[in-house]
Nucleic acid binder design. Structure first.
Lengths: 222, 222
DNA sequence: CACATTTCAGACCAAATGGTAAAAAACCAT
DNA sequence: ATGGTTTTTTACCATTTGGTCTGAAATGTG
């Protein structure tokens, strides 16, 4: 009860007086905690992560963490909430007026950059999916479907205009999602097999051009 | 100690007298437990799964489960062990003498069938990857790399013979893995967006032909 | 600078849960 | 049947761990 009120108050004060010394430190700390939580949740799952470990990684005490977030579950929800914003943004750039091939190439690049720069987000999203995405039911169901539907319409328009080969837009989107995210989620496997990782710029470019080539041209000769 | 001996004895008796009433029931029970464990582990992770729940799903008592498997961790290891055999088998069919296009098409189909028929296996494998695959370090590192290396050589031979467009074989394999497994691991998302699932034969064939088309021909027109 | 308010850390608690001990039941060969 | 072996159950324990309580320290303000 009381702690809930505190959380509400803190958010309000942040929103109102964004620059005070206190609320600044508070915000920094919350961010540090969420970052640490994201890292650990995405590796070990929510159940597999001890609050103590998150606190240690964020360099705060366990009690202090619980002061900012009412419970581990609440922290998880907050982390997922923020994650979704980052995660669903890139797709919005699909636009009928743009060049089809270029847009797809760019999208593949952006998604692969996300895998390189935000692997924890990718893993956590993936893990939530494996769990059956219980708490994304509302978040995802309606808004995501509408977003994808609208982008599928764009792709269909490209196809109708002869800019793309006939393909089911949904499967194309799934293909781009899966191939790019794979490099974050299955990183250990990929490193084990190739002895490289996406942080190596050469490997990144090589990966990118191969994915673009496969998705655009395919592997059939000629 | 003593329980370990029991396990060894039981395995021996199974191997020697495969048909006795007891060892038969025992084997059935172990299978039921492993199946239940696979299902729950793949959804909630090892930490997120209570032994009691596994037992309930397998219709045995918790203690009885612990009688067959020394610990939850041991059960997990056994489940992963069995899973790996199923999981890595299909790749072995790649063969230089076979037709390149046909082999790849077949492989995509087999992998997609696995996603349809063994989604729990796919999820558990995926989850283990997200965790950093700690216990696959030895299981996977060397054998898998060698297997993939040898198949990459086959693909390179196909390319040299003009049967395939020039592509990095590793990225091609990763692409096939990621796209097909995606339909098991992100099932909820895919169902949410398309309102279909792989168990629908029409959707399965549609998915299959789209994946084959993208990977072989790409989406660039003409 | 003194007082009120916010923030923190260490001790502590209680529930959840993996695992054990020992007895009871089921089973099988002789 | 019966003696011994294997499987199952009942009762229980010990640890882990999310979360709270309390007193102290830091902080901001009139």
């Amino acid at each position: 009860m009381s702690s809930e009120k505190i959380t509400v108050n803190s958010k309000t004060s942040q929103a109102l007086s964004g620059g005070s010394k206190r609320s600044r430190a508070k915000l920094d700390k919350k961010n540090a905690i969420m970052q640490a939580a994201l890292e650990l949740f995405s590796r070990h799952g929510v159940k597999g992560t001890r609050v103590e470990k998150i606190a240690a990684l964020a360099k705060v005490s366990k009690t202090n963490l619980l002061y900012y977030f009412n419970s581990k579950e609440q922290l998880y929800i907050d982390v997922m909430q923020r994650l979704l914003q980052v995660w669903l943004a890139p797709l919005a750039s699909f636009n009928e007026e743009q060049d089809a091939i270029e847009t797809i190439n760019d999208y593949i690049r952006v998604k692969l950059e996300l895998s390189r720069d935000h692997p924890a987000e990718s893993r956590l999203f993936c893990m939530e999916m494996l769990h059956g995405a219980p708490l994304l039911e509302d978040q995802l169901k309606s808004p995501l479907k509408e977003l994808v539907d609208s982008k599928a319409a764009v792709i269909n328009a490209w196809i109708a205009a002869g800019k793309l080969a006939p393909v089911d837009p949904y499967h194309l989107i799934f293909t781009i999602w899966s191939t790019t995210q794979h490099y974050a989620d299955f990183r250990v496997q990929i490193e084990s097999i190739t002895s490289k990782n996406l942080d190596d710029p050469a490997f990144f470019e090589n990966t990118l051009s191969n994915l673009q080539s496969i998705i655009l041209q395919g592997v059939r000769p000629n």
